[in-house]
């Protein structure tokens, strides 16, 4: 429903001091409408700064951020509206839960938007369904939920605002495999059902490979690679050279290729490896 574009964006922490750190250096990129885009990179690659810029929590030192072609800083007084259009789920979002019930907490964002109570009720149910939160949990205190459930409740709280662009910073951090799959599937379900643009920031190549359409790789405050999932993973060697953890299966494919096994580029899931190896064994 919306396209986000960065035009030559730079961001410097502590500018004009000896402690100045350039977090983003002349970054231009486009997050395409209706796609799930993964932003991947090391800590310190600039990806967390990027997240704060996307919904106007920080202002770029130079350059422009365009939401559907319009500079989000054109009218700083209307930043609240921008924040309704670009939803942000921060890292460990369960630390923001505060209401007495899960339902009230999910309602917090929509209520701040001034929606009617009927509309809010509809949105709570819808958001809970996306993240797979059982309805019986909605009347519990958020502090009584398990870690994975808290995370899902917090994500639902932003989904209920129905932002045109949903940005999530490390939505699966610290969760166990089941919790990780549940939340990422929920995000994918939300993207597919609403057609919203979704941005997921992560350092897990395996998760990105499984859930994203497009991938942007950040390194040293710049965009290192970007394109569709297949395009980016075709450069597995380039990824390894910036020290990113490529999926184990991709490493395997590299090793096999080095030993003369003829495999195509861009193997990043077990399924892809299986398809590629199958004909060789026949």
């Amino acid at each position: 429903m919306a396209t986000l574009t960065l035009e030559q964006v730079s961001y410097v922490y502590n500018p004009r001091t000896p402690f100045a750190v350039e977090a983003l250096d002349d970054v231009s990129l486009t997050v395409r409408d209706g796609r799930v885009t993964g932003i991947i990179g090391h800590t310190g690659s600039g990806k967390s700064t990027l997240v704060q810029l996307l919904n106007g929590l920080e202002k770029p030192s130079s350059g422009r951020i365009l939401l559907d072609g319009e500079d989000i800083w054109a009218r700083p007084k209307e930043m609240k509206k921008i924040r309704h259009r670009v939803g942000l789920v921060m890292q460990y979002p369960e630390y923001q839960l505060f209401e007495e019930t899960v339902r009230a907490d999910i309602a917090f964002g929509p209520r701040n938007m001034g929606l009617s109570e009927e509309e809010i009720a509809v949105r709570i149910d819808e958001a809970a369904a996306f993240v797979g939160l059982e309805l019986s949990l909605l009347d519990k205190s958020p502090f009584d939920l398990s870690g994975g459930e808290k995370r899902r409740a917090a994500v639902a709280g932003v989904m209920a605002m129905r932002p045109e662009v949903l940005v999530l910073d490390e939505p699966a951090a610290g969760l166990d495999p089941r919790g990780r799959d549940t939340i990422l599937q929920g995000i994918r379900r939300y993207a597919d059902a609403t057609g919203s643009t979704v941005v997921i920031v992560s350092h897990s190549m395996e998760d990105m490979a499984a859930y994203c359409d497009d991938i942007i790789v950040m390194a040293h405050a710049k965009v290192y690679l970007s394109g569709t999932r297949d395009e980016v993973f075709a450069h597995a060697d380039a990824l390894a050279s910036v020290g990113l953890d490529v999926p184990q299966i991709t490493k395997l494919a590299q090793l096999l290729r080095a030993r003369g096994v003829e495999l195509p580029q861009g193997i990043y899931t077990v399924q892809a490896a299986l398809e590629a190896l199958r004909p060789l064994f026949q």
């Binding site: 299966i249 395997l252 030993r259 077990v270 299986l274 064994f281």
Partner: peptide, 27 residues
């Protein structure tokens, strides 16, 4: 992932002996 791949291949009838853990072993 390597373990999963070896199991998937075996299910398809490829004769692979051993349980590789590391990428090198699997290769």
């Amino acid at each position: 992932q390597c373990t999963a791949l070896v199991h998937a291949l075996r299910r398809e009838g490829v004769a692979l002996t051993g349980e590789p853990i590391t990428t090198e072993e699997c290769a």
